[in-house]
Amino acid sequence: MAQEIYYEDINVGDAMPELVKGPIQKLQHVMYAGASGDFNPLHTDDDFAKAIGMDGVIAHGMLIMGFVGQAITSWIPRKYLKKFGVRFAGMTKPNNTITVTGKVTDRRVEAGENLITCEVVAQDENGDVKITGHFEAALPSRG
C-alpha cells in the first residue's frame, strides 16, 4: 500500500524504496503465462527452450516489468503514474532474485502539474541488469 505523497516531499536524488523479488520459481512463469496470455513455450517448457539453444526456460520480460511496476506503485500511488517505460537488457532465469531500485532524476511544474521523473533498474543477485527504465508521475501539492 502506497502512503499519500506530496510533490514538496520529493527531491532529485531521492531513492525509491528497494523491492526484492524471488528467488523466482518456474511455477511463477506458469502463473504469469496464464494471467498475461503470453504462452510462448520459451517461458514454461524446458525441452522447447533447449531445442532452440537455451539452457532452459527464462522468465517473461513483462513479469520483471511487473516487479518494477510493483516497486513503483508501492511507493507512488497508482493514480499518479503518467508514464512508465522499460528497456529489456537481460534474461532472467529460474532461481534469480531480482532487486528493483530507483531514484528521482527530475522534478518540475509543467502545465500546472507537479511532475517527477525517476530512473529504475532491476538486477539479479550478481548485479546483472535485466531492466532499465523510467517513470513519470504527477503528484499533489501540499500548497
Binding site: 500500500m1 502463473m31 510493483q70 506503485t73 497508482r78
Partner: peptide, 8 residues
C-alpha cells in the same frame, strides 16, 4: 502472478 500484494 506478479506477487504484488498491494491491496488496491
Amino acid at each position: 502472478a506478479i506477487g504484488d500484494s498491494n491491496p488496491i
